[in-house]
Amino acid sequence: MGKRVRMPGNGAPSEGLKRVDPEAIDTIVAAHAGHEGALLPVLREVQEVVGYLPEWALKRVALGLGLSLSRVYGVATFYSLFTTKPKGQYVIRVCESAPCHVQGAQEVINALMRELGVGFGETTPDGRFTLEAVSCLGTCGVAPAVMIGDRVYGNLTPETVLTVLEEYS
């Protein structure tokens, strides 16, 4: 099993795509300190700044909020919008639920996988796109739907989804 995690240290951001000043984490933590249930908002903001939730950032959050690293890691890995690994520049979230499925989501997914050459959970070699399957985007009136970054696209076909992709290339 994993090596013992040293608590918590001033780990410098040795990994990741962006170079982020560790103090930025402290600023976020300080803004929420004293608020009950601050962990989720803090992790959200940290992810916005760093791009993902690397170990060094989780350690710093744990230290700042006075929580155990295991608790912070447990929360960071529970929710689908949090990620402990770096992702592509754009995350493509494809809805796989029944309302999208019956309107042809599978063909849209196949087209995306063919075009990008990656499966679910994978990132294109150029680091541009990460493909993810999600449960429901709440835009079922325009199924099948796909979310790229924070934009939702609806009523897609295997052809139109490729046109949408062109906007990002």
Partner: peptide, 19 residues
């Protein structure tokens, strides 16, 4: 929220609100 279907269940939602 941060993406979890189960959080629609009221007590799971409370847990999530508590961090």
């Amino acid at each position: 929220g941060a993406g979890a279907y189960v959080c629609g269940e009221e007590t799971a939602l409370l847990e999530s609100l508590e961090g």
